[in-house]
Design a protein around this nucleic acid. Structure first.
Lengths: 340, 340
DNA sequence: CTGTTTTTGAGGTGCGTACCTCAAAAACTT
DNA sequence: AAGTTTTTGAGGTACGCACCTCAAAAACAG
């Protein structure tokens, strides 16, 4: 039989009340007593029964997902998965809410974050570009006793347990390698497209891409990143200009998570030239493009996995546990039309 | 506030005891009453609190993983993940044991299965080739009240909820497409290697592979599958013979989950020719081969995911729930050295 | 209608923990 | 040593459900 708190109390030579105080980090216990209880924990191999604990705690967990207000297609996929998970996890007493922030106004965003209280949330998963204001707000949030994780875009140099998402340098490298291999023995220029190069994600992807291309494949020349700023018209324009200026384009790498406009352009270009096109994030449009061969490959991070992993990570932090690393590692998926 | 069994009893106009009888499928309740309770469930949106339920049930869940006794490298990875999960899920009151069966002796295997009792196991995940004996044993197991899922190799035409693994036809097609694209505009013969073509997995992979190659790429010719039967010496032999007989070999597709010997051969062949090599399942050796460029790509199914998904599926069955489809779908992963 | 069987209700206990209160004990302070 | 503060113990309640017993009620059979 697994030892219970009762057994633990006996083993440590203290009362249940003291065991409770130690286990839940309440104050008013001498260090000596704390040590004695901890010693007993390891000695008898006590493990808190999380099932009973959550039941007794009465209120399960309330987590918030902070996401940009205005978003691309990928964001809506994420949001869909959040509410799907919320549905499915009600029986496990986990509630999930979505909190929108203004990604273009760091101050307002920080203010929104500062209003999130520990009475309302046990943990927050945040998806936002890193700015000093946000970083600060997160710091204060943790001081208020709210657990945090960053998802998709890493905030600063966080530790493993505070970021759920992929290594974007590796993702860019993956795209680069595929691009090179799919191009085979051809040669020419490669277009690289991003929403903005201000964001760390784009910078890292480009870095990884170049790291593979530059030394390994001198026959290709990846042009400077073109910025679309998320506007379809601008995307059309910069693409058209680039194609005019560089007749020898053989590849197109769409780095951002909003690929619709770029794909549309590629679709029109595709029939004549054999343009190899690679994009990120599986969405209805990228999936469609993969099926109709407009896209040759898709680099994806499973949004469902990210959402669930963020929740598990937050919960583990609330319960002061470690996560199972292998489960929380988000894969850089390569999708082609055969393994959709 | 979420409705509890008490609320449900009131809403259905019955007592708590009757609600309990209906919820847990006990006998001695008129159909009419059952219907009334079920109606009330949907009407007030009752959802059983699983946390409280497992606590009250006292004993959590005991699951068994039935795996072949003698196995390849992939199997040991699976086993590692099972015990890792067992460790991590003790706090959730889930126990997992490994049961070995003799894969080469269907009768003995079936006998082992028949000895698994409902007193010991709530559910069984089985990884075994399909034979009439096993199929039968599984059927009887379900009659005994033990839930089952097949993992990795599907048993017959099971429904979605009874199989955790990948679509091997699609996996073969993925390998085929990658092979073709990596070969580019070259032409020649492609070697296909399997442990045995008796197994459904190999047949399906080959089918998928051919479905992509045959119509789409006339410049390649995939040779008949060579069987290694899992013996390194035989692998060496058949490979050597094949290479002698077909000087024009440009690709090697290793279909089985035991790739060590074949990789070793490929490693020796690689320097001179530009042999494109694709294998299945990530293991220490295939991973190493990917890093040193002996392998060009790896088709993988995440063993950790499979194990966890099998458990979740079994648990859902025990609790008479549906699973979250998107979470249980095992991906056909494409691995190259950049996204390991 | 009576006797038998089936169905239902009322009530209880326990799971392992959280969280609360109040008094007693121990540890400090001056 | 007396007073003050800190630490500990004892005991209780609650969470939502599973599982049990026994008696009462309802349905059915003859």
């Amino acid at each position: 039989m697994r030892p219970t708190t009762k057994d633990l109390a006996k083993a440590a030579g203290v009362s249940l009340a003291t065991v409770d105080r130690v286990l839940n980090g309440r104050s008013g216990v001498r260090q000596k007593t704390v040590d004695a209880v901890n010693e007993a924990i390891t000695r008898i191999g006590f493990e808190r029964n999380q099932v009973a604990a959550t039941l007794a705690r009465q209120r399960g967990y309330r987590f918030g997902f902070v996401v940009p207000r205005s978003g691309d297609e990928f964001l809506s996929v994420i949001v869909k998965h959040i509410s799907e998970f919320d549905q499915a996890s009600r029986a496990e007493m986990i509630q999930t809410k979505i909190v929108r922030i203004d990604e273009h106004d760091p101050h307002r965003a920080a203010r929104t974050l500062s209003r999130l209280s520990a009475d309302e949330y046990d943990g927050i998963a945040i998806m936002a570009p890193e700015t000093p204001q946000i970083r600060d707000a997160l710091y204060r949030m943790r001081e208020r006793g709210i657990q945090t994780v960053a998802i998709i875009s890493n905030q600063q140099e966080e530790d493993d347990q505070s970021f759920v998402g992929i290594d974007n340098v590796a993702a860019g490298a993956t795209a680069g390698r595929l691009m090179a291999r799919f191009l085979g023995n051809r040669s020419g220029d490669i277009l690289v497209l991003a929403e903005t190069m201000q964001s760390r994600d784009s910078l890292e992807r480009r870095l990884g891409f170049d790291r593979v291309m530059s030394p390994g494949y001198p026959q290709f020349h990846a042009l400077p990143t073109l910025e679309t700023h998320g506007y379809p018209e601008r995307t059309n324009l910069v693409l058209k200009n680039a194609l005019a200026a560089h007749p020898d384009i053989v590849g197109l790498y769409i780095m951002g998570s909003e690929a619709r406009a770029a794909i549309e352009c590629a679709r029109q270009l595709k029939p004549d030239g054999k343009l190899i096109t690679i994009a990120h994030e599986r969405t209805p449009s990228t999936e469609q493009a993969l099926r109709d061969n407009t896209l040759d490959a898709l680099i994806n991070q499973d949004p469902g996995h990210i959402v669930r992993s963020a929740i598990r990570t937050l919960r583990a932090k609330c319960e002061n546990r470690e996560t199972l690393a292998s489960q929380e590692r988000i894969r850089i998926e390569i999708l082609i039309s055969e393994n959709l």
